[in-house]
Design a protein around this nucleic acid. Structure first.
Lengths: 172, 172
DNA sequence: GGGGATATGTCAGTGATGTTGACATATCCC
DNA sequence: GGGATATGTCAACATCACTGACATATCCCC
């Protein structure tokens, strides 16, 4: 016996499950925090922040990138970009060359020093991801949860899980 | 025929693959940006920011939370917490009650209004995750990539992929 | 019951990163 | 030659983090 409400067929692309996916929401938050936390420790020693990391990363990955393209990727204003980019240029981690066809453009390239730092930071983040992948069995939602949980510092994981599993205390 | 270097057995828990996992690094960055971007638009209408969202979320999820426990979860200073918490209290989204056993504690609870906002924001993020899960086939690394790519705004995804797939241009 | 530890609140200053708005310069292209 | 485009820069401001210092209330132990 079902009410009409319970019986109504779900729209094709509803994407709203019956229950909020609190676990995944929180796992994503914690996983990202640790994901950016790794590079943060290194960057501090260079007097750089996350903003510098993002710029260096995308310049390293897309050598010859224009300012406009970089702004497109980062979705920040040119004033915000300019501040960190200027520091990367001054400290010799990135260099500019005039565009070949369009000389208004400033094509961005990593210097050897910049390349080295970018690779170093990528290696750090890769390690965390690689470990997470190793620890992940993978199959649908349960698999995604396991993957993101594995992205969190092992020492933190139990606490996080405990905090998220209060579902059973409101009598459900 | 392998050199000694190539033959050396990998340490048990190395977690460093031969190649950096650039795709996953970038997908994680973009996915998180969109994940927090959804709530941002709503929060703006209330004069709140991401910091308020995080506090409201964890108070809603863990009613009766103490300040100390909240600081532990968020890993920020009490001064940082206090500013946003005060606003949530003043605007009536969170309320404090003295601890039952320890009256020094300020137990935090969402008000009905706070609960409503928290649920609304969770619903938004749940929708994105749910859609991503639906679009994900899941099996090991390839599955994780697909999952995170699906977390990115559909309109953005092709661009992102294009920018990340420059691997083949350096002759490899 | 006095006193140190604990939980929380608050003031003041600073830093990193983002924003808007306005304007300058160099180059491109019709 | 002149408008559009790519970039650089100055100034002011918002958010959210930090450190350091200090105040208050309550707990708990000797």
């Amino acid at each position: 016996m079902q009410t009409a409400l319970e019986m109504r067929s779900k729209p094709v692309a509803d994407h709203t499950p019956d229950r909020p996916l609190y676990d995944l929401i929180e796992l994503f938050f914690f996983a990202y925090r640790d994901f950016v936390g790794d590079p943060d420790r290194i960057l501090e020693q260079y007097g750089f922040g996350r903003a510098h990391h993002r710029v260096l990363h995308f310049v390293d990955r897309n050598p010859g990138l224009t300012i406009a393209a970089l702004l497109d990727i980062l979705r920040i204003t040119k004033q915000s970009l300019n501040r960190v980019l200027k520091e990367l240029l001054e400290k010799g981690y990135v260099e500019q060359r005039a565009g070949l066809t369009d000389r208004r453009q400033r094509l961005l390239y990593p210097t050897p020093r910049g390349k080295a730092l970018a690779v170093d930071l990528a290696r750090l983040q890769t390690q965390r991801i690689a470990r997470a992948l190793e620890e992940t069995g993978l199959d649908a939602e349960a698999a995604a949860k396991r993957f993101l949980a594995a992205m969190i510092e092992p020492a933190e994981r139990p606490t996080v899980a405990r905090l998220s599993h209060h579902d059973d205390e409101d009598g459900a």
